[in-house]
Design a protein around this nucleic acid. Structure first.
Lengths: 154, 154
DNA sequence: TTGAGTGCAAAGCTTTTGCAGTTTC
DNA sequence: GAAACTGCAAAAGCTTTGCACTCAA
C-alpha cells in the first residue's frame, strides 16, 4: 500500500472527489446530511489543513461547532479525513484524498499550515512496523516561521 | 547545523548531560531551583518523551503541575527541551540533547511514545526553507498500534 | 536584598459527552 | 418507523494566568 504512484499526478477534479467521498459515506452506512455536505464542501475547498473552528467559519451560517467535531470524527473513522497537530496543540484536518505523500509546514507564529509535496514516509512506516507496530501511519510536521510572519518580526 | 555527526554515536553519560544542562540554565540567567533540578532529573531518566503529567508523577512528592509546565516552557525557550504531540493532542517533552535525528512512534491506544533512531529530517527542513520558512525544525510522528495494545485487541 | 521562581486557585481553550428533538433512509 | 444525526448546554481535559509568598543569587 501507499506506493508513490500518485506522486506529482494531477489531483482529481473536485466533482469527482466529492462523489468519491459521498460513496465512502454511503458504503459505511453514514447518512448524508446538510451539515455533512457543508463540511465536505469546506474540506474540498480548503487548500490547506484547517482547524475545526476554521472549518465552521468556512461553512458560516451559524453552524454548530460540536457537529463539526463529531463529523470530523466520523469522517476520520471512515478514513476520509486525516488529522495533524499544530505546535499549539490544536488539531488540523484535511481530506485524506489530498494526502499523496506530502507533508505540512506549520508556522510557529500564525499557525497556518502549508503543504510540501514529498514522497518518503514509507520508509519510516516500515521502521515502525519492524518495531512491532501495526496500523502505522506517519505525519511529518515541520515547524518554522513563515515568510509573512518572519517579515513582521524583523 | 543539525548534521549527522552524532548519529549512532553513544549518548553522553548522564552526569555530563546534567552539567551541560545546568550550564545552559546558568548561561541564560535561569536559576537552579529544587523543582528545576527534579524536573531535569526526570527528563534525564526518561528513555522516551513524557507528558507534563507523567513528568510530575516521575518526580513524585506532590510536585506542582503548574510549575512543571512553567519550567518546561522555560527549558524549551532555552533550547533544552523539545515538544511533540501525541495523537490525542497532549504535549510530550524530551531533552533536546536526546534529539539526534530520531523520530517518535506514538501508540494510538495507550499513547505511549517510543523512539526510532533515524537520520533524514534535514532534507525536509531544507524543503521548508526553500519555501520561505525560517527557524525550521521537524517532528516526524508515526502513529500506530504497539504490540502490547495490538495483542489486547486481538 | 530583590527579582526570579513557586504554589495555590481560578480561568481559558479546545474537545467531548448527554439528551431531547429532528431528519434520513 | 427506527436509528442516525443535530443542536444546545454542560462537562471534561490540558494548559495558562494572577497573585501573594519564598528563595536563589
Amino acid at each position: 500500500m501507499d506506493t508513490c504512484k500518485h506522486h506529482r499526478s494531477e489531483p482529481a477534479p473536485r466533482k469527482e472527489r466529492l462523489s468519491q467521498a459521498l460513496e465512502v459515506l454511503k458504503a459505511r452506512g453514514l447518512r448524508i446530511t446538510r451539515p455533512r455536505r457543508a463540511l465536505l464542501d469546506a474540506l474540498l475547498d480548503s487548500p490547506t489543513p484547517r482547524s475545526a473552528e476554521e472549518l465552521r467559519e468556512d461553512i458560516g451560517e451559524g453552524e454548530d461547532l460540536v457537529t463539526v467535531y463529531r463529523n470530523l470524527d466520523a469522517f476520520e473513522r471512515a478514513g476520509l479525513v486525516l488529522r495533524a497537530h499544530a505546535e499549539n496543540g490544536k488539531a488540523l484536518f484535511h481530506l485524506s484524498s489530498d494526502h499523496r505523500h506530502y507533508h505540512l509546514v506549520i508556522c510557529r507564529v500564525c499557525h497556518e499550515a502549508k503543504i510540501i509535496e514529498d514522497c518518503d514516509g514509507d520508509r519510516f512506516e516500515r521502521l515502525a512496523r519492524d518495531q512491532g507496530y501495526s496500523d502505522v501511519t506517519h505525519t511529518l510536521e515541520l515547524h518554522g516561521v513563515c515568510a509573512k510572519c518572519g517579515d513582521k518580526r524583523v
